[in-house]
Design a binder for these strands. Structure first.
Lengths: 229, 229
DNA sequence: AAATATAATATGTAATCCATAATTATGGAA
DNA sequence: TTCCATAATTATGGATTACATATTATATTT
């Protein structure tokens, strides 16, 4: 009956991963309603694990659960993006400050190596690799800040904009701009200039927000979920 | 069979509320393991709604879910408190800054009225009422900051320390100290001095953190969840 | 007495069932 | 013919039950 799945992870997690991929591939576009019965039938499972999966994705911000109306692929409005980036800039800025305060030799070495990856992937115009390297660098800054609650809060917010953020590096010139900002940030961190590091990080975030805005102007005229009422 | 519960809200929500009360009343003390079968039997329900309730409480930070080991009433260590307050100070400070920037006549009036409650309840030494009034004032600042993500992020973090925070106002002199800090904060807000408002709010949070620390020295010698390994 | 194996217990997961709200279709009246 | 009301259908939300698996406790053997 069930050929694969010998020592399976939880079914709902498997389903969540499949849906995640379909959402990121825009096979399920933002705003798309998700028909539980149809999907469950398609996957040959009952509704329970599917609903569990949807709850997980809702917690990640990928889908939105509307009571009695069902699940929809999340859609983020421009104003919501602004609001999230406003908070993220403050938090990541704070992380950079703390990181600069706590920097030691080991950490400096790690940051230099991670930054090196950025330089290399940027020179090769390897966008996906640059994206990865960028993630790693920011993760190291968070690690340095040494505050698990700061980290998890930032992670939660990042997750919400992940869908929007993913393609912004393909924007003309964004990669070079990001690299330059990283150079300045790295310099401030290595010098232990907490104030400057915070400022650089905030600016970096602001710049990232604008890259997305720029993208959207080209792509889609209006994206807002219904906010009128 | 089921006497009350005519048009009930979700059973798991009802259960979550009951557990919440028992936790806040310390009837279920921090660290206490939660026996699903026993509790389900006690409430006369199946495990499913109980487990749903536990998931909700886990998201709120009131209980901790350990895989394959079960649920425990959350216990927050001193260092975790520090970490949370560090983030909260940054976020609430930012909220105060934005609030000061966006202040108008209506808002000023509301803030004055809310602060008036603080003055009155403090004079009457009505600690619970002061606690309520304090919550309302901070909520208004958040409302003014006009960023739903900032609000919800702060709410999430507050929830985690709610258990610790609740009794700190009973500490000798804490109420007066808090009131004085609020006076300065209000002044900064009403003058639209964003910088000062942020500074006051951060200081207010730092002070709140210390009040808890002070309490703990009296009450419990060591509270840390196992962090050694 | 210690270690390993086995039994008992509790948790994690999923399928089925039932209740309720929302949507759609149908019929009647203006 | 069109609009509104009501009924029927459909989909979602919630909960009991059942089953698989990991952990813990106990007993037996070395």
């Amino acid at each position: 009956m069930t050929p694969q799945r010998i020592a399976p992870q939880a079914l709902y997690q498997e389903v969540a991963e499949r849906l995640r991929q379909r959402i990121f591939a825009h096979e399920l576009p933002p705003g798309q309603p998700i028909d539980e019965l149809r999907l469950a039938a398609e996957y040959g499972i009952s509704r329970t694990p599917l609903r569990e999966a949807l709850k997980v994705l809702a917690a990640e911000g990928l889908v939105t659960l509307v009571p009695r109306r069902g699940a929809f692929v999340s859609q983020i409005s421009a104003s919501e993006l602004d609001a999230i980036f406003d908070v993220l800039a403050v938090l990541e800025g704070h992380a950079a400050r703390r990181a600069a305060e706590r920097l030691d030799e080991e950490a400096a070495k790690r940051l230099r190596r991670l930054h090196q990856r950025l330089e290399e992937t940027a020179r090769a115009a390897a966008i996906d690799a640059f994206f990865e390297a960028n993630q790693a660098f920011h993760a190291e800054v968070l690690r340095l800040a040494n505050n698990p609650f700061l980290s998890s809060t930032i992670q939660d917010l990042r997750q919400k904009i992940r869908l929007s953020r993913h393609h912004s590096l393909y924007d003309e010139g964004r990669l070079e701009r990001s690299l330059q900002e990283h150079r300045e940030l790295l310099a401030a961190l290595l010098e232990g200039e907490a104030e400057a590091a915070e400022r650089c990080m905030r600016e970096h975030l602001r710049s990232g927000r604008e890259a997305i805005a720029h993208l959207r102007r080209d792509a889609t005229p209006t994206l807002d979920t219904e906010e009128s009422s």
